[in-house]
Write a protein that binds this DNA or RNA. Structure first.
Length: 434
DNA sequence: TATCCACAGGAAATCAGGGTGT
DNA sequence: ACACCCTGATTTCCTGTGGATA
């Protein structure tokens, strides 16, 4: 065992030495992080101007209007807001405004949002992560705002606000936040909502819509040439001189432009390509690196997503995988997925039986994530069901699932359920119907 | 043409687990 | 110890339904 290990031993000292000796690709890779705010935001002048106009009165201590920002992912909504807030802070007004940035995807409940707002403002007393009634926190928050924020303005930026709206209690908390001002004596608040879905307003409480939805700023998607500008600017900071081959940025921009002009994606692509070049000790980043990066990036997202799912969801995916693996001619339908799930969950200690209803929800989630596609179809006398297809390679699914401890051992379990005559017959009939 | 299967999927209830103040 | 709070996952209960079959 020991000798065997030595054959493959990784020489870490040598590796680091080589690394330091080798040609450098990055100059400042932090500039590719999502939190990085560039000095200039190309092609966002209109939006910057609009936001500046709306927020300027905060410098005089007046209440700015609440508004919404729309745009697809990677159109610079968050970056622009942060950029403007930075500039505003540099004006040294006597009413220096506060900015509280909330991502509703991370802080996903009314309680946590209130607690977060309170805790970022409060110096000493903190709200515990759970336990208190919401209205108590709300009242405490009002007192705190008047105390600490004084006669300044507090901007509450709610990123991914659509997620909040579609949850129970989401509209209530928004309503409460919109009318904070009515309950405040000297301080003022202003809401800024950020969303990538235009449709979410339909679910918005009319009372909230009237104050928040009146005004909105649209962030159009970038086209390829705009993306080129963004990438060129950023590359100057991120990479060493002369590292990028000249056709790299156009390709990167073109690929991202296909994806509704997602700048975030373009930047991720660039980083990944840089890392490829670095790892293989290349002097330059080439278009081939970009192409590799693209493949890798897609898989990364999927892998990350699957690993982050709850175990039960992973088991539902495992069920789908097993059906597709052990009877490749099998049509995957929701009922069978349920039965296979019931079977394999018995193999893992401590995993409880789910209802069909729940499994159905997990199937929908997998479908929403783009891992599978599920189409409801009526089979006439054989009832309604979902026809499920794996949308990503089975090898990839296998690779990820094998990395999950509790699932690894059942990856070769051939479901008994699939071998029953009843199921085989049904599958036979279904194949003719499709 | 009426029937009827095997689910879909919405709404509300329940449970357990993390807390609180009194 | 007690009554109560918030959340997330799940169950319970439910109504709806497209189209092959009798």
């Amino acid at each position: 065992m020991k000798n065997h290990e030595n054959d493959y031993q990784f020489n870490i000292d040598k590796y680091y030495k080589n690394y330091l000796k080798g040609s450098r690709i990055f100059n400042n890779r932090n500039a590719l992080e999502a939190s990085y705010i560039p000095k200039e935001l190309p092609h966002r002048d209109i939006q910057i101007k609009e936001i500046a106009e709306k927020t300027a009165c905060a410098l005089l201590g007046d209440v700015p209007p609440s508004f919404l920002c729309y745009g697809m992912t990677g159109t610079g909504k968050t970056a622009t807001i942060r950029y403007v807030s930075q500039k505003l802070a540099q004006q040294n007004s006597e009413f220096n405004p506060w900015w509280i940035y909330i991502n509703c995807n991370v802080l996903s409940t009314p309680y946590r949002i209130l607690a977060y707002i309170y805790n970022t403002i409060s110096r000493k007393e903190k709200i515990p992560p759970t336990g208190l009634p919401k209205d108590v926190i709300f009242r405490k928050l009002l007192g705190l705002l008047d105390n600490r924020v004084g006669n300044s303005v507090c901007f509450l930026v709610l990123d991914e606000i659509d997620i909040l709206v579609n949850k129970k209690g989401g509209n209530e908390i928004l309503y409460d936040l919109t009318r904070l001002n009515e309950n405040l004596d000297i301080s003022k608040t202003s809401l800024i909502g950020i969303s990538n879905k235009l449709k979410f307003r339909e679910n918005l409480d009319p009372r909230v819509l009237s104050s928040l939805g009146e005004d909105h700023i649209v962030f159009p998607s970038y086209d390829a040439s705009e993306l080129r500008d963004i990438l060129t600017e950023r590359a100057k900071i991120v990479f060493q001189d002369e590292v990028l081959k000249e056709d790299v940025i156009p390709l990167c921009a073109a690929l991202a432009a296909k994806e509704h002009g997602d700048a975030r994606k373009a930047l991720q692509l660039l980083r990944k390509a840089g890392e490829f070049a670095e790892r293989t000790q290349n002097k330059n980043v080439t278009t081939q690196h970009i192409k590799n990066a693209q493949k890798d990036l897609e898989n990364d997202h999927i892998v990350e997503f699957i690993k982050g799912m709850p175990l039960q969801a992973q088991l539902v995916l495992t069920s789908i995988y097993l059906i597709s693996k052990f009877s490749s001619d099998h049509i995957i339908i929701s009922g069978d997925v349920y039965d296979v799930h019931s079977e394999i969950r018995g193999l893992i200690p401590g995993i409880r039986q789910l209802t069909k209803r729940r499994v159905s929800d997990y199937i929908n989630e997998l479908s929403l994530a783009g891992i599978i596609s599920a189409e409801v179809k009526s089979m006439g006398h054989y009832g309604r069901t979902k026809i499920i297809k794996l949308d990503i390679g089975r090898e990839l699914v296998e690779k990820v699932l094998l990395e999950i401890d509790k699932i690894r051992n059942i990856m070769n379990h051939k479901p008994v359920f699939l071998q029953t005559d009843k199921v085989k017959l049904k599958n036979h009939i279904f194949k003719k119907l499709i």
